[in-house]
Write a protein that binds this DNA or RNA. Structure first.
Length: 716
DNA sequence: GTTCTAGAAC
DNA sequence: GTTCTAGAAC
């Protein structure tokens, strides 16, 4: 509670100054003061964030009643001649008000990030954007909106509860990194009263301290990292040589360097967990009827495609019920069957090839919670979260959403899964949202809808796939025959022998000869890609492609050279021109692949002048630099200064002068400049918040020479 | 390369 | 008091 008061103290000081400036006594000094103060004068855009009934309009009216600052309240519910209007109309009116020197309240729900983003863009040198979050309990909001009459949004009575509930489902609390200069959270009437005071006291020349205030229970969710090279090196072979109850088809894929792709699958297969019968406590007998009936109805539409109900345990009741009922109905057990295993490891551990898996999702489509949902999100990594977010924010019971998995996603790569279908069933558990209170008439209807929607989603992937030429899977033919445990021993030995001793300089190189152990990871993978199947995205005789373990942007892969003696750019000569060309071509292919998935991505391909890790590697990196792993000056400068040598420049230089020009490591210590507008920023967080919204085009030299790879139709 | 953390900067 | 950097250790 002390924080809004701090704000008030701040205003008090400013008020003193304002009084002085408005004194008519000394005109000359008044002019001086005015100039000084008006140089700082800023309009404010306040986005009210809260569902209907949270008190947004009341808040605005209370402030405007006695504020000395000119305010304009922009309410989407009445903007259209007293009727509800559009977001665009609100934006237009906000711009007009700001031009007139008025600060603005955006009085609409603004509950999710996307809804807010356009308004945040109103911010600039003379406009600050604040969020005022009315986090009152859903009950309070609902009871207020149910009771009220004559509300502008015409949202009253019974319909209000449903609308409020629906809106709260897709709620995302605002964060400073969206571009707000200040966020204030209110949880009760006292908080709101304080907030009203704070904004009422705000004179035309005043500003409020920036930052986020009053947040309770901040969301501390951390992004799970992608694969860990070092852990994988020892963990993978060890795991596969032990406890696999079912078959161990690990060796099956050995001759396939390009992992399982949908075109190579003979039979499209959907693996799905039983929906609603675990945490949602749906009756198993009723659920098994619905599964069998819906599957039976769908099989004729699915051609040769298969449906597989999966559960973790051999003792699964739902599995045995479904098995028995399907058999009684004489359903083709080659096309509809049950399977015991981890749905995220059906191929690697169970030998079952599935290209689509279903997730028993939660309504927020968020990771966590346990069970299948947690397992799938964990196995798929952040790629699935991003791909899901691109399709939907929430899910209603009985519905599903089909999410294509990016080609770099571990689940795609290691298990051959191309799509995840999130599906939400009915809930019979009183401790979970939207409990149906044992209403099985409704429950069965929704569960049937859920499976229908799921199978329809799968059907759509089957139809897409049937357009592709079908190829036979050759992967089951060969096996190298080498013992995993033996391999593992040898492998560990290699690392150990390289880490014995020697002084290490700051780029991981030993001064004499050899590298620090962590700096060898890329070299080890390049030399033996077949031992790193789980992380290798592609490989040939000359190159290996992997995800950067700590990506510094939304997309960041490495093309490793497989040449033993080429540790970095300084070792490259004319004899490597073909290699450099192949690396460039492979890099371009990945750019195209990524841009096919997201056309707005922009890429550069290049090398670090002085690499930290052994083995020449080409960075293929999207230019958003949107990554929690980008943490310090060295990270930023290594990709955005002359230290980053564009692949095409390197090629030209090696062809013309036999070697590439290298930039000194000294530039890594230089100031932090925006990669678009070149403005300097004092800290990494400030730089990152700037680059999120920097509207400038990229520097001329990159745009002109196709060093920068953007889709022609992208608006950047 | 990352992680950890002391202490500078705000 | 919190945020952020930079250096040591790995």
């Amino acid at each position: 509670m002390f924080i809004p008061l701090l704000g008030l103290e701040f205003i008090e000081n400013r008020k003193e100054r304002e009084r002085e400036t408005s004194s008519p006594i000394n005109n000359a000094s008044k002019m001086e003061m005015e100039t000084e103060v008006s140089a700082e004068k800023k309009e404010i855009v306040v986005l009210l964030v809260g569902p209907p009934g949270s008190g947004k309009s009341t808040f605005c009216e209370s402030v405007m009643k006695s504020s000395h600052r000119p305010w304009s309240r922009i309410c989407q519910d009445i903007i259209n001649n007293g009727k509800a209007g559009s977001k665009a109309q609100c934006l237009k009116m906000a711009i007009e008000s700001l031009k007139e020197g008025k600060s603005v309240f955006i009085d609409r729900c603004n509950l999710d990030r996307e809804q807010r983003s356009e308004f945040i863009k109103l911010g600039g040198p003379h406009v600050e954007v604040h969020a005022l979050v009315l986090e009152l309990s859903a009950q309070v909001c609902i009871s207020r909106s149910v009771k009220r009459s004559g509300h502008e949004g015409n949202l009253q009575g019974g319909r209000a509860a449903a609308v409020v509930n629906k809106m709260l489902r897709s709620k995302e609390l605002p964060k400073l990194n969206e571009g707000f200069s200040r966020i204030l959270f209110c949880y009760n009437d006292a908080d709101v009263e304080n907030a009203v005071k704070t904004y009422t006291m705000l004179g035309p020349m005043d500003t409020l301290p920036s930052g986020s205030f009053g947040l309770k229970n901040p969301d501390t969710k951390s992004q799970p990292g992608i694969m860990n090279f070092f852990k994988k090196v020892s963990a993978v072979p060890a795991a596969s040589s032990s406890s696999n109850e079912v078959t161990t088809p690990k060796a099956n894929e050995k001759i396939e360097i390009f992992r399982v792709s949908p075109a190579k699958l003979v039979v499209p297969t959907l693996a799905f967990p039983s929906i609603s019968t675990a945490d949602f406590q749906f009756d198993l007998d009723k659920a098994s009827d619905i599964i069998v009936e819906t599957a039976e109805a769908f099989l004729p539409k699915l051609g040769s495609a298969r449906l597989v109900l999966v559960d973790l345990s051999h003792g699964s009741t739902i599995l045995s019920l479904v098995k028995a009922k399907a058999s009684r109905k004489n359903i083709d057990s080659g096309r509809f069957f049950t399977f015991v295993g981890d749905i995220t490891k059906l191929h690697s551990q169970g030998g079952l090839h599935c290209n689509v898996i279903a997730n028993a999702a939660n309504w927020r489509l968020k990771s966590g919670g346990g069970g299948v949902n947690a397992a799938i999100f964990k196995a798929a990594g952040p790629d699935l979260e991003a791909a899901t977010r691109a399709r939907a924010n929430t899910l209603l019971p009985g519905k599903s959403v089909l999410v294509p998995l990016p080609s770099t996603c571990p689940l795609h790569n290691a298990e051959g899964i191309t799509h995840v279908i999130h599906v939400l069933g009915p809930n019979m558990n009183p401790n979970r949202p939207d409990c149906l209170n044992n209403d099985y008439t409704k429950g069965c209807k929704i569960l049937r809808e859920a499976y229908t929607s799921l199978f329809e989603g799968f059907l759509s992937t089957v139809q897409d796939q049937s357009k592709l030429p079908k190829r036979i899977n050759q992967a089951t033919v060969l096996d190298s025959g080498e013992e995993d445990s033996e391999r593992n021993k040898k492998f560990k030995g290699t690392i150990a022998s390289n880490t014995k001793s020697g002084s290490v300089d700051d780029s991981g190189k030993k001064r004499s000869k050899g590298w620090s152990s962590w700096a060898l990871a890329l070299h080890i993978i390049a030399m033996h890609p077949e031992k790193h199947e789980n992380i290798v995205l592609e490989s040939s005789d000359h190159i290996v492609v992997i995800n950067d373990q700590y990506p510094k942007a939304r997309k960041h892969v490495l093309v490793l050279a497989r040449e033993e003696s080429v540790d970095g750019l300084e070792d490259v000569g004319r004899e490597n021109i073909q290699l450099l060309e192949e690396m460039q071509n492979v890099g371009m292919k990945w750019v195209q692949r990524f841009q096919h998935e997201d056309p707005s991505l922009i890429f550069r391909l290049g090398y670090h002048s002085v690499p930290s890790m052994r083995q020449l590697h080409l960075h293929v990196i999207s230019q958003d630099f949107e990554s929690d792993h980008l943490k310090n000056k060295k990270h930023w400068n290594s990709f955005t200064t002359s230290f980053f040598r564009d692949s095409l420049d390197v090629l030209e230089e090696v062809k013309s002068q036999g070697k590439a020009n290298l930039e000194s490591e000294a530039v890594l210590k230089g100031e932090l400049r925006c990669n678009r507008c070149r403005s300097a920023h004092p800290t990494i967080p400030k730089l990152k918040s700037h680059i999120r919204t920097c509207p400038s085009p990229f520097p001329h030299h990159l745009l002109q020479t196709s060093r920068l790879l953007a889709r022609p139709d992208s608006s950047n």
